[in-house]
Amino acid sequence: MLEAKDLAVEFSSRGRRARAVDGVNLSVGPGEIVALVGESGCGKTTLARTLLGLVRPTSGTVSYDGSPLTYRSKALKAYRRQVQLVLQDPMGSLNPRQTVYEAVAEGPRIHGLADEEQVVASALARAGLRPPERFFLRYPHELSGGQRQRVVIAGALALDPKVLIADEPVASLDASVRGEILALLLRLRDELGLSALVVTHDLGLAWNIADRVAVMYLGRIVESGPTEEVLKAPQHPYTQALLSVLPESPARIVLSGEPPDPTRIPTGCRFHPRCQVVAAGNPIASKCRSDLLPVLPATADPQSACHLTPKLLG
C-alpha cells in the first residue's frame, strides 16, 4: 500500500547539511501494521511527514498502491484522502474553539463529501464514541484524554483512508486508556482492512500492535523483520540496547557517547561510536569504524545492518 524507496531528506542548518533521513526503504502492506521505533532525533517523524507528502524528499520516492507520489496540489489532495495522519497530542491537534462535530467534519468539507452529518456520525461511531450524536456539540476540554484521541482518529476515518500514519498515538495518554486505543487500532485493521505505520519509541507498544518492526537510527533502518523475531532475538546492538530498558530484561545496556548528530554521520557503521560491542573491544571493531554497511531493502524477512550479522544483511 505504501512504500519508501531509497528515501533521503536533508535540511540546511547553519551552513551544514543535516541528513534526517538517509536512504530508507520501507513498505507497509495491505492490512498490515508496521511499527517504526527509535529514540528521539533518529528521523522517525521526518520520515512519517515525508510519507504523508508534507516534506518533499531530497532523493528517492514515496509510492502509494504502486504509483509514485507526485507533488501537484490536486494529486496531493487525492493522496491525503487515502493516507491520513493521527497525531500524538489530541489537545494540541484539536482546535479548542471547535466542537467535536466541526473537528471531524473539516476533512469531509475540504474534499466535498456528501451527507456530512452521516459521515461524521459514522466516523465517531467507528472510533468508539457512541452514540455519536451525544458528542457533536461537545468541546475538547469537556472530553477525557482517551475520548479526545478517539476524536482525532474519527477525523482521519471520516475520509475512509486506506492507510493511517500514527505518530506516538498513545504517548500522551494515561496507562489505563492506552490499551483501549491500541485495541481500537487493531479493530479498525480487522474490520476495515486499514494499514498503519505506527511511529513510537515504545517497544512494548510495538510488541502489542505491530506485525513488523523497523528500528531506525540516525536516519536509517538498522534492523527490521516480524515483530516476534526482532523483539525476542534482536540482532543489532542498538535494538538490544533499546530492549534492555524493558522491566523483564535481564540486564540493562547503557550506551556511551552522545545522541546522534545528523550533521555528522560517522564513518563505517553509524552506530559504532555508541556501540557496546565496539566499546567492549570486539575484534571486529576496526571494521565497524571503517567499513560502510549497505542500505537495507524493503522486505518482510528479518535483516540487520551490522557487521556482526552479515548473513542478515540485505
Rank of each mutant, 00 (worst) to 15 (best):
F135L: 02
V55T: 14
D65N: 13
C288E: 03
P266M: 05
Y79I: 06
V83F: 10
L243Q: 08
R17I: 15
D291V: 14
L203E: 06
D6C: 06
Y217K: 03
A103F: 13
C288M: 07
G112C: 04
L231Y: 12
P90V: 04
S59I: 00
Q118T: 06
V119Q: 05
R252S: 04
R81W: 05
V120P: 14
C42A: 15
H141E: 11
P297I: 01
S67G: 09
S93E: 09
R270W: 12
A8Q: 13
P169S: 03
V104Y: 04
F135T: 03
T46C: 11
T58F: 10
S256I: 10
A103G: 08
R81M: 15
S304Y: 10
A48C: 00
F136M: 01
V151T: 02
S40H: 08
T267Y: 03
T58G: 15
Q276P: 10
V119P: 02
P234C: 05
G155C: 10
E191M: 10
R17V: 15
G43P: 11
V245I: 15
A279W: 10
K287L: 15
S224T: 04
Y79A: 09
E228M: 09
S27F: 07
E3W: 08
L182W: 08
I221Y: 11
L129E: 00
V120A: 02
R56V: 01
E168P: 13
P273Y: 11
S249H: 11
L94Q: 07
S27M: 10
D211Q: 14
D160Y: 02
N25F: 02
C288Y: 08
S40E: 04
R109V: 04
L36I: 03
V9Y: 07
Q147P: 14
Y101S: 00
V278M: 07
L188V: 04
Q276R: 14
P90Q: 00
I284P: 06
L137I: 03
P294A: 01
S93G: 07
V100S: 02
L203S: 08
P294Y: 09
L87P: 08
S249C: 11
S290C: 01
Y139Q: 03
T70V: 11
G225D: 07
I153R: 10
S40V: 00
P108Y: 07
E180A: 15
K311N: 12
A75R: 12
G281A: 00
P247G: 08
L203W: 05
P30S: 09
D190Y: 03
V152T: 13
A298F: 12
L312R: 13
P283I: 02
V37I: 04
Q147N: 11
P90I: 03
S93R: 12
G155Y: 05
V37N: 09
L205A: 05
H141L: 11
P273S: 01
P68R: 05
V245Q: 02
Y71C: 01
V213F: 06
R49N: 14
T309A: 15
E133M: 06
N25R: 08
V245E: 04
E102S: 12
R126Q: 14
G219F: 14
F11R: 08
C269Y: 09
P57F: 07
Q98K: 15
D65S: 15
V213R: 01
G92Q: 13
L7A: 07
